[in-house]
Design a binder for these strands. Structure first.
Lengths: 337, 337
DNA sequence: CTACGTTTTGCACACGATGCAAACACGAAG
DNA sequence: CTTCGTGTTTGCATCGTGTGCAAAACGTAG
């Protein structure tokens, strides 16, 4: 059996209350008493039972991070930063995956509850239907911070990205290079997810700004933002005539797949097809060619997310806050940088 | 305040105990009573308090996964599989990072304790000093499963990799291609970690088997198994004479950096330098050239690790079990495949 | 010696659920 | 009609900590 407060008190010949006072740093404790208790604590290797403490105080010191898949580089890089940022303010992080499954997403959102083993949830949603959030989302009992979208009109704590502008920057760069047949990879075939909708809007806006026609066959769906989907999408694009001379991919992973498809078709990046992605994952810095991308500053997103969530936990009734994380275009070899 | 068992009991006009029986699926409950209680549960949206349950039962339903860095693809791919495997047997996973810091590693190992918010720990150690483990490691109070090494003589539950053989397979492949100046990237400069020592042993053994001389300048250290370190190490190797015509990298990430360095030096992979890695991360399947590697079967490692840990949690006194995960060489473009 | 402020203690209770064993109901067997 | 047994329901204690309150013990200054 583990050592308890009571055991320590017995050994140090003091009351349980005093031991508790020492452990929790109560100020009116004489130095010699503190020393005596601390010695007993060391001798017995006492460690407070986190579960009992949680039951009493209502705080677990744990945050939940929910992402589609942890092995997608953008999410694993984000997770790294979240764990570090949380650690700095005394929280640990449990991670769950939705696996692109709407039911699972709903289920996890439902499980965001102070009765669980975490104090609040960082949620990177696929489906951002407001009804779902309104039903099961943030209440004082369910601290929740949303990541990555940009359409919640101040009702939820939220670290957003200006997806429209990010897409415009990326496509604007391709335009500036003189490319005229600029395709997009990453629209969603059936469901209407916010991120791809916004990036599509930015893409179309940038084309319009440049006075370029939009060829509908150049807007290519990709279900999972994976290398596989990027590869398959690019193959389809390369079969279309006229062939695109540039591609805006909605994620770096799509771009990695697209680049590979271009070379497998006997063409070159950037000479025949320029490629730009979004996320600035480490992989894109060492790939050949290295990847031009829109960098999203994952460390900042993570820090802000943790800040918003801990604030929400401590002040359940505070007004919702929305942070828009900055982004910037990083030009590398895949567009001739 | 949240709805408790007591509230439900009051509403359903039964004892707290009966509600508990219904919730936990006790069999001797009459259908009408069950219905009555379930109705109250639905009406009040009751959800069991996981923390209180844990205090009473001693089970949190949470596992800890400790890795150096979660954004290293091998670990994020492993984490994905661990989370899935754990989920299948009713566990969730919290993740912590040691960040290559020995003190942090020791601290986390110390924190592996049933008083914490998890039931056991999956630990992927850098330092595998037996003394450390013997002091703070696995006891019935501290369920622990080690990942990735192969030198614990049956004292700990352990999912191992045959690192020596894996290295021999990789280097043997380079030998079979006719390469004669085969370098290695990934030895450890100062500390004596088990994994690199074993891979170095396999490397040297393979050279000896082939009757090739080992040039000490061709054994190149890399502190962190990162793309950066792989790049830097390869640059150093390319300056040596005679220049190596093949490189065995102790991780795919090192290999990615090494490949890039070869091309930046105006040479080609595999023509001038063949490159083989270890891990079989997704990145290597789409890189140019795609990466020959030793695949480690992360799903199997994860499943076995979770199986061992849950077994240890349920049977604290069981004999330690060691599983050796299989590996196989996958030949791709970086060695001419 | 008294008065007052500081430490320390004891006690009861709360947090929410569950293990244990006793109590209860009810039909069947004697 | 009692007894037994099976099946159902309940009361109580407990898991380990934290907290509020009141009182006791202690030390110091007046």
């Amino acid at each position: 059996m583990a050592v308890t407060l009571r055991d320590v008190a017995e050994r140090a010949q003091v009351s349980v209350r005093t031991v508790s006072n020492v452990v929790s740093g109560y100020e009116h404790v004489s130095p010699q008493m503190r020393e005596r208790v601390n010695r007993a604590i060391r001798d017995m290797d006492y460690r407070p039972n986190q579960v009992a403490r949680t039951l009493r105080t209502g705080r677990t010191g744990m945050l939940a991070l929910v992402v589609p898949e942890i092995d997608v580089p953008y999410f694993s890089e984000l997770a790294r930063e979240v764990i570090e940022a949380a650690s700095e303010v005394g929280y640990r992080v449990m991670i769950d995956q939705t696996g692109h499954d709407h039911d699972r997403e709903r289920e996890l959102l439902l499980g965001n509850d102070r009765s669980m083993l975490f104090d609040g949830m960082l949620f990177s949603p696929l489906v951002t239907k407001s009804e779902l959030l309104d039903m099961h989302g943030a209440t004082p009992e369910r601290p929740l911070v949303l990541l990555g979208e940009h359409e919640f009109d101040g009702r939820y704590d939220h670290v957003a990205i200006d997806n429209v502008q990010a897409a415009r920057d990326a496509v604007g760069h391709l335009v500036a290079l003189g490319r005229t047949r600029i395709a997009a990879i990453g629209t969603q075939p059936l469901e209407e997810y916010a991120t791809p909708l916004q990036r599509t809007a930015g893409y179309e806006r940038a084309l319009a700004d440049a006075g370029l026609d939009r060829d509908p066959r150049h807007s290519t769906p990709a279900a999972h933002y994976s290398r596989e989907d990027g590869y398959a999408a690019m193959r389809r694009l390369l079969e279309s005539t006229p062939r695109p001379d540039a591609v805006f991919c909605y994620s770096d992973l799509l771009a990695v797949g697209a680049v590979r498809a271009v070379f497998d078709a006997g063409l070159r990046v950037p000479q025949d097809v320029a490629v730009v992605g979004v996320d600035d994952i480490a992989e894109g810095r060492y790939s050949r060619p290295s990847l031009t991308t829109v960098s999203l500053d994952a460390p900042l997103i993570a820090r802000e997310a943790v800040r918003l969530l801990t604030r929400r936990i401590e002040h359940p009734e505070a007004a919702a806050e929305e942070v828009v994380a900055p982004h910037r275009l990083i030009v590398r070899e895949s567009t001739g940088g």
